[in-house]
Write a protein that binds this DNA or RNA. Structure first.
Length: 753
DNA sequence: GACTCCGATCTTTTT
DNA sequence: GATCGGAGTC
């Protein structure tokens, strides 16, 4: 068991203590993933546990995949048989197998948030309620909260506490909407995200034999990111592990940032009460960050009351102070961030991929993007509007969904008149009303249109019905890829997009092609046993935006919300928008109690950094399309002043780099070739059109240069590839175009890959 | 039923 | 600054 040698004492204990309830409190950067990985490997290796009997629940599919991969490298291909995945994907799988018990077909659809919202919108309209008072978003979050606490619509409507709360906020009908929503989902053979957990609880509660089966299957249960589980998830894991009580949860209360969707920090705080024989192991040594960063983070989180006692420390170097950046506007903030990235790249020989820019809200990404684009620094955005949320993708997916589940109301509404075939809203309404009155599924009404609703839409609907019935046969007889491409072209969607020659239209067409490629990949992937369209749709429905990251150019700066950054680490991190009302967010300030969660969010952001942390704020910012002045965030004052330094150097324009040739040479990596002639004119103009430089394949060096662009300002990296034998240089200008450049600084580094 | 224009609303985070 | 829905027109 040589892997045990690589662990410190508490880590080793966490790996070896496999029997009985166990809670691992893992501070930021304390090697949590490593411990989980080795623990599972250890179960298989040292205790001969069949991987089929191990259940490991993670937060994202990506985390599950990575862990499986790492376990595989220790124990081999056996790792494939582990039950590992997100709560939603694992229990969706179990629900499909047991769907009949709950009266659902096994091909039930999974509604995403958009589907849920538009269904709610329909219901609110049908109940003649004011959609200004009953906003779908708000109603959905109310229902979601209830489901996450395992409160059924029935309990919701009878419980006086919920009644009173709803009446107080002048929304007494939420219970009624909840009821209608559940009924409509059931009729549509659909479950939303919360239902996957709620219904698993119902399944285990109402069918002891089913529960028994899974209790005996999973001898060992592990939960990652335990601090972010809600009651519904917690009860599932408790029930599943009730027979053997080999339950191990890993988490950090200081990093609980999902209370808004029902995560309950009490789960972690109360775990000890639920399991009196609980073994608690604390991992407190941080291996990720410098002392300054660890201490700064501690000084912030200390302000929270609700937390478990622990002492996160590090043996790493002291490191540099946290750097505060003040900007006059969001635009300048972006510029300063880009400039600092540029400087750090040169001074420390970092790659783009060593940087992350973290923000509170997705909308903040724009000004950062603009600045990075200007300086030709490559970046990628994680999260935001995901590929699978795009209109054209959802359109195609709706066709596929409907071919599999003819009761899927939301899919039906989406595709019935797309492309336009003369079936408008009023026809759809008539179909739905007839279906409700006669008690038939709406698809039956559509199929017998001339009998139920004679009129001018009959012909168009009949054609649609024939087409869909054809698709259903296709889905049964072909694999996912063949079926999807058939449906994409026969439905007329592909054609319509193809004929749209605008840039957006072209883009959409390409996106659909990309979707088809993804389905092809899914079918060709030998690890997927089930290659049906249904299996693909299930996977896609439960994909998270972190999972979608399959960028093939790995050297990019990462931009994302702090929420998405959980579990990740970067050499240098920028937390931008440190302004009151933005971070902490206005909404949290008004509801006082959750300021602690905002602080934990800040803690998560800080602890992503390994070497260097930047915090930036702007004194004015565009919000709601209007320029507003902003105050620095209260969080900035919560960092112990000993760990922070204020940077003014770069906020005034005249303070630009200038370097002498000596500086230039002293930055050479020892033993490497001297810089070639073409790059020596420091502070001089280089008049070379792009065409004069050819990227070289034989390179082993890369030169980062600070350059000035007459129009776009200064600060841009140019890669210079050196041919070692001839000492000739060729420069790749990276989309710079034919422009005159001022070289003011350069530094050579080894290009390791 | 399809199209166009205008105003309201949104942004806190996501499985 | 973008998107969505409603009103009005063809």
């Amino acid at each position: 068991m040589d892997y045990l040698e690589q662990l410190n004492e508490p880590q080793r204990e966490a790996v070896e203590n496999v029997n009985g309830p166990c809670m691992i409190i893992a501070g930021a950067g304390s090697g949590k993933t490593r411990v989980l990985t080795y623990r599972i490997a250890h179960l298989m290796n040292a205790h001969n546990v069949d991987p089929f009997n191990i259940l490991a629940l993670t937060f994202t599919n990506k985390a599950a995949g990575e862990m499986r991969h790492r376990i595989e490298s220790v124990v081999g291909s056996d790792a494939k048989n582990l039950w590992m995945g997100t709560f939603h994907s694992v229990f969706a799988r179990i629900l499909r197998a047991e769907a009949g018990r709950l009266g659902f077909p096994s091909n039930f659809t999974i509604y995403d948030t958009d589907d849920s919202k538009s269904l709610l919108k329909n219901i609110i309209k049908e109940l003649n309620l004011d959609d200004q008072i009953y906003k779908p978003n708000m109603v959905l979050s109310r229902i979601s909260m209830a489901k996450n606490k395992l409160v059924s619509w029935h309990e919701y409507t009878t419980n006086p506490i919920y009644r009173a709360a709803d009446e107080e906020s002048n929304r007494p009908e939420i219970g009624r909407i909840y009821k209608a929503y559940v009924e409509r989902c059931f009729k549509a053979s659909a479950m939303d995200f919360d239902d996957l957990l709620f219904n698993t609880n119902v399944l285990f509660r109402n069918f002891p034999d089913v529960l028994n089966k899974y209790q005996h299957r999973f001898h060992y249960v592990m939960v990652d990111e335990f601090q972010d589980t809600n009651l519904s998830q917690y009860l599932i894991t408790r029930k599943l592990s009730a027979v053997r009580e080999n339950i191990c949860v890993v988490g950090d209360d200081a990093q609980s940032i999902y209370a808004f969707r029902g995560a309950d920090i009490q789960n972690i705080l109360n775990f000890e009460k639920d399991y009196p024989s609980l073994k608690v192991i604390k991992l407190e040594q941080n291996y990720r960050s410098t002392q300054v960063i660890v201490e700064a983070a501690n000084s912030v989180i200390d302000k929270n009351r609700a937390q478990l006692k622990k002492n996160v420390w590090t043996a790493n170097e002291t490191g540099e102070l946290v750097q505060l950046i003040k900007a006059n506007s969001d635009g300048e903030e972006g510029k300063l961030v880009a400039t600092h990235i540029f400087e750090e790249k040169m001074n420390r020989q970092y790659h783009n991929s060593d940087f992350a820019v973290l923000y509170r809200t997705n909308s903040q990404s724009r000004s950062i993007e603009e600045a990075l684009r200007r300086m030709n620094i490559k970046y990628k955005i994680i999260g935001g509007l995901s590929f699978y949320q795009r209109k054209e993708i959802k359109d195609i997916l709706s066709y596929l969904r409907f071919a599999i589940n003819e009761r899927d109301e939301q899919a039906f509404r989406r595709i019935i008149n797309l492309p336009k075939r003369g079936i408008g809203d009023s026809t759809v309404d008539k179909i739905m009303v007839a279906a409700a009155q006669l008690g038939f599924p709406f698809w039956e009404i559509a199929k017998g249109m001339q009998n139920y609703i004679p009129g001018r839409a009959v012909h168009a609907v009949a054609e649609f019905v024939t087409m869909i019935e054809g698709f259903k046969l296709t889905v049964q007889s072909k694999d996912a890829y063949e079926a999807a491409s058939h449906i994409a072209s026969r439905s007329g969607i592909l054609k319509e997009l193809y004929e749209d020659k605008t840039i957006e239209g072209l883009n959409r067409y390409e996106n659909v092609q990309e979707l088809l490629n993804a389905i092809k990949e899914f079918v060709d992937n030998t690890e997927n046993e089930d290659k049906s369209l249904g299996a693909f749709l299930q996977e896609v429905a439960l994909l998270t935006s972190v999972d979608e990251d399959k960028d093939n150019d790995p050297d990019k700066v990462t931009l994302m919300t702090i929420h998405m950054a959980k579990g990740l680490e970067f050499k240098a991190v920028f937390v931008v928008g440190m302004e009151e009302d933005l971070f902490p967010s206005q909404m949290m300030i008004s509801s006082r109690s959750d300021l602690e969660e905002e602080r934990r969010l800040f803690y998560v952001a800080i602890t992503r950094a390994e070497k260097k942390l930047f915090l930036s704020y702007a004194t004015s910012r565009y919000r709601f399309g209007k320029l507003k002045s902003c105050d620095p965030s209260r969080f900035l004052e919560e960092i112990n002043p000993g760990y922070i330094k204020v940077d003014r150097k770069l906020s005034n324009q005249e303070n630009r780099f200038s370097a002498t040739e000596k500086d230039f040479r002293s930055n050479l990596v020892s033993g490497m070739a001297p810089p070639p002639k073409t790059s020596t004119p420091i502070n001089g103009y280089v008049h070379k059109p792009e065409a004069d430089f050819q990227p070289s394949d034989t390179s082993n060096l890369q030169v980062g240069m600070k350059v000035e662009h007459p129009k776009f300002g200064f600060g841009m990296v140019i890669k210079m590839d050196l041919d070692g034998a001839n000492r000739k240089a060729s420069v790749n200008f990276e989309n710079f175009g034919e422009k005159t450049l001022l070289l003011s600084f350069a530094k050579i580094k080894i290009h390791s890959s």
